[in-house]
Design a protein around this nucleic acid. Structure first.
Length: 877
RNA sequence: GCGCAAUUAACUCAGUUGGUAGAGUGUUUCCGUCACAUGGAAAAAGUCAGGGGUUCGAGUCCCUUAUUGCGCACCA
């Protein structure tokens, strides 16, 4: 295959993906001879477009999945999309409004028809975008949270929980979004700090004996007050508890009551109680049997019966209330006050806590939370990094019942039917034909749908076929790892854990790998409103999916947020270009050459060195990936490929490749191709496209790199001793280059070097390497006494290096260089001596470490002596 | 208020059971060399936020302070 001179991902990524898909490499089947490895995708919303958060999430998942597949697991990555009940409905309604349509005008059926059409259109869009990323999902199993399979599971779970008494319908206070027109769960409320006021309002006693002043942030809810509460221990109000107050404006008679909930040191120590519109007041109301007066409609306007207030929006009502109180002389003062206000996580409208007009459905959480907490404590499911377990505990330990009914149309309709005649409630999977109690056929299904997260919670098993006992479920459940960002631990992860335990009797995944968010160059969250989002599709178009993936994986730590910038992708693209060109070099030379067997072929010193390094990289990268340390793995691969394979090994073997020695060429190319192939395999999970592309050109290629066997370190390639001594030669080469740069010798100028060394034989063996890589034409071995006067020198592990440079010799530069070396050595010696003179170190540190220090110390002493000797000589000149 | 992170080179970040601090980008000098200028060679650059402790040895473990960010809970 011809390879272009530069790496051009756009020219082949699509073809490669088609090739994989056509051959069904992503498809997984239960295989008793293999171990399963299962990952379910966090289903992206059908309304969504691929953003950087997805890109990071998909990159990590695909990396792990490809790695496991190559390791020989029967690997299933199960894809799907989420119906995203509230988010989607909001968008559809918005689109309809532009056409002058409303939900009501279309009716439930008409609306749902539209919604499904929307799903067809946009659900496919996100799936296509995932494919650009290179996701190796089993698309044959593509699921949707509202498909028949999932619907069946949802109904089964609902009925099961109801029968068990864990699902109940209650008239409790809920978070209500006036904009979306539905109740939402506690988890769906986001608190935002808001600058507001604290209004101090006078409530007079009925008997004219004075007044109580309450402080409130919501004067308009005064309309619904049914009491004022103080702390019974508060001396300011002693003797007043039980007296009757007149509610200003409304003139309702309400009681001053005592309740421990009231803090004495906040505000005035007196709290107005509005049971229908505040969660705390609601509790107080229950304790004291207070009337619950609802004053807001579903759209947060004031209900009928309150005169001028009726019909006003809550904020307009607040203004009017302030005015009325002022006029009536009830307003004591208004002070600036900043507090947290709850907002809907979807539309950011300030939520209203409202006592449900319709009853809401709740899941009783305590019994479900308990075993779910235990499972994480027992490490049946492990959070990675571990610290996220405490976030999980914190939430689960303080969990309240989960409000799951939503006053929406797009979603799983609640499987409950009510008898219009006798009021009986029937909860069952299929619609009843008549009332189970009175036999009436006048039945109505509950109008509401379920929280989106109710179906997501079942994802790891509903997608595998539950409640049916499928082969998939049997083989692939529980899944191995769930990979997601930390912002949906509550919404999703926690709910999957308790659902898995409750319905499958087993946790849904063994590991939860939590990653952070992708931020912009300045560390800001990417958001639409800021307009600072970087579009991954654009990055793919400009740099290729591999560059995007590598940039997201490279140098990141699990759980941490990561910044994304164009310079980072560019440097990653450059790295891939480097691999591309190194491969081009190897393939060019390997053309028409018959390769030998890597295990038996004769190896040069450079070969042994690179194989030794390769072994290390294989071992460490495998270990890193096993522990999900993708950042570390990519770091090591980057360094190995660039700094060792390209910068050194390829340069080292050039003299052989350009020589006429066919045997040496053959063996060198065998190693060269082997190392390259191994590199490609190690990199494939992160940068799948380019590695496949190059792999297909290798003379040793198999069908696809996707199914190639994951590399293992090879005992025979240990070569520790050879590698170590070879690195001394590399140091010598660096020293020569250093001197050359120091005296500004032009690179093409060949030089002669002199060495005082005890290992002439070894240096001679390496002389070709030295000559080629350091621009040397002649190496002369001399005795100490033979060192000429006019040379530049450096002291190396191999021995004293002396370069006669004629006019270019610059004693001052050399002295400066040697002095820097001297300082370094002195510091080193001091460190080493301090350690070895420390009896604690010698007796307690590992023996190998002590020995290492001893030999280092000896070598350093020798080197220092040589430096000092040389310096003395230079100064005496 | 409670909890969790982060604080390492000019910038952005890594740093594996504690054993001589690393990379990318940027900077300086040189180089159109036949894989690659999306490149090569060389170099400069760090009191690992401050303080204490444990240890033979701490960027790493413990305590504490500061700054920043995040999560949870909120006093109406």
């Amino acid at each position: 295959m011809e390879m272009d001179k530069t790496y051009q991902p756009a020219s082949f990524e699509k073809d490669i993906y088609d090739f994989w898909q056509k051959n069904k490499y992503f498809h997984a089947v239960p295989d008793k001879d293999k171990k399963p490895f299962t990952v379910v995708i966090p289903p992206p919303n059908i309304t969504g477009q691929l953003h950087m958060g997805h890109a990071l999430n998909e990159t990590i998942q695909d990396t792990i999945v490809r790695f496991k597949r190559m390791q020989g697991y029967s690997t299933l990555w199960l894809p799907g999309v989420d119906h995203a009940s509230i988010a989607t409905e909001v968008k559809i309604v918005e689109a309809m409004r532009k056409e002058g349509l409303t939900k009501e005008s279309l009716g439930r059926e008409g609306f749902l028809k539209r919604a499904w059409a929307w799903k067809e259109k946009y659900g496919n869009r996100i799936v296509e975008q995932l494919k650009y990323m290179g996701n190796s999902c089993d698309w044959d199993r593509l699921a949707f949270t509202m498909d028949d399979k999932c619907n069946k599971a949802v109904k089964r779970v609902f009925v099961h929980l109801y029968d068990k008494g864990l699902m109940y319908r209650g008239n409790r206070i809920v978070n209500w979004c006036p904009c979306c027109g539905t109740a939402i769960s506690d988890a769906e409320v986001e608190y935002e700090e808001q600058a507001s006021f604290l209004w101090h309002i006078r409530y007079p006693f009925k008997d004219g004996t004075g007044e109580v002043v309450v402080a409130t942030t919501r004067p308009e809810t005064l309309l619904g007050d049914t009491a004022v509460a103080v702390n019974p221990k508060d001396s300011r109000y002693s003797g007043m508890i039980g007296k009757t107050l007149i509610l200003p404006i409304v003139n309702r008679e309400i009681e001053l009551l005592g309740d421990d909930y009231v803090e004495t040191d906040f505000g005035t120590g007196a709290v107005k109680i509005t049971p229908a519109h505040d969660p705390n007041d609601y509790e107080v109301g229950l304790r004291h049997n207070l009337k619950q007066i609802r004053i807001f409609n579903d759209n947060a306007t004031v209900v009928d019966g309150y005169g001028e207030f009726s019909g006003l929006d809550r904020f307009a009502a607040r203004k009017l209330m302030e005015q009325k109180l002022q006029e009536g002389g009830f307003l004591v003062k208004k002070e600036a006050y900043t507090h947290n206000v709850g907002a809907c996580y979807r539309c950011h409208t300030t939520i209203e806590t409202i006592l449900g007009k319709n009853q809401q459905w709740f899941v009783k959480m305590q019994p479900l939370a308990k075993p779910a907490i235990e499972a994480v404590k027992n490490k049946e499911t492990k959070f990675i990094p571990e610290r996220f377990a405490s976030v999980y505990y914190n939430w689960m330990n303080n969990i309240k019942d989960w409000c799951v009914s939503r006053q929406l149309w797009w979603g799983h309709r609640i499987p409950a039917w009510y008898c219009a005649d006798c009021g009986e409630t029937m909860v069952q999977e299929d619609a009843p034909t008549k009332c189970s109690k009175c036999g009436s056929t006048n039945l109505n299904q509950d109008e509401d749908v379920l929280d989106t997260w109710f179906s997501s919670a079942l994802w790891p098993f509903s997608t595998l076929g539950w409640p049916d006992k499928t082969e998939d479920l049997e083989y692939f459940y529980p899944t191995n790892v769930l990979i997601t960002a930390y912002d949906i631990i509550f919404f999703w992860v926690a709910r999957m854990i308790f659902s898995g335990i409750e319905h499958m009797g087993e946790v849904p995944f063994k590991d939860v790998l939590i990653h952070g968010l992708v931020r912009d160059e300045q560390g800001r969250k990417m958001s639409k409103s800021l307009g600072n989002g970087i579009d991954p599709l654009e990055i793919i178009a400009n740099y290729g999916a591999d560059s995007l993936r590598f940039a997201l994986a490279y140098g990141t730590a699990p759980g941490n947020d990561t910044r994304f910038s164009n310079t980072k992708v560019e440097s990653c693209r450059n790295f891939i270009n480097k691999i591309w060109n190194a491969s081009r070099f190897v393939l060019m030379n390997a053309e028409n050459v018959e390769l030998g067997d890597i295990l038996t072929v004769k190896k040069s010193l450079a070969d042994k060195w690179i194989l030794n390094r390769l072994n290390k990289v294989v071992r460490e990268v495998t270990k890193n990936l096993e522990k999900y340390e993708i950042g570390l793995a990519t770091n090591k691969l980057y360094d190995f490929v660039w700094s060792e394979f390209c910068d050194w090994y390829i340069e080292l073997v050039k003299p052989i490749l350009y020589s006429a020695n066919e045997d040496a060429k053959k063996s060198t190319l065998t190693v060269l191709v082997y190392v390259l192939e191994t590199i490609l395999k190690l990199l494939h999970p992160v940068i799948p496209f380019v590695t496949e592309k190059i792999y297909q050109s290798l003379p040793t290629k198999g069908e696809t790199i996707m199914l190639a066997t994951w590399p293992k370190p090879i005992q025979k390639f240990a070569y520790n001793k050879e590698a170590k001594s070879f690195e001394n030669i590399m140091e010598l080469i660096r020293s020569i280059r250093n001197i050359r740069a120091d005296v500004k010798l032009i690179p093409s100028k060949k030089i002669e070097i002199m060495l005082v060394t005890e290992d002439q034989k070894f240096v001679t063996k390496c002389s070709d390497y030295i000559k080629k890589l350091a621009g040397v034409e002649k190496i002369e071995f001399i005795a100490n006494e033979q060192i000429p006067k006019n040379v530049q020198s450096a002291m190396t592990k191999v021995g004293g290096l002396y370069i006669p440079l004629g006019d270019l010799v610059d004693a001052e530069k050399e002295i400066a260089r040697l002095n820097i070396e001297k300082e370094k050595m002195l510091k080193e010696l001091e460190r080493g001596e301090k350690m070895l003179n420390n009896p604690g170190f010698v007796s307690r540190a590992p023996q190998t470490l002590v020995d290492n220090e001893k030999s280092k110390l000896a070598a350093n002493r020798e080197k220092l002596d040589k430096i000092l000797e040389r310096l003395q000589m230079l100064e005496s000149l």
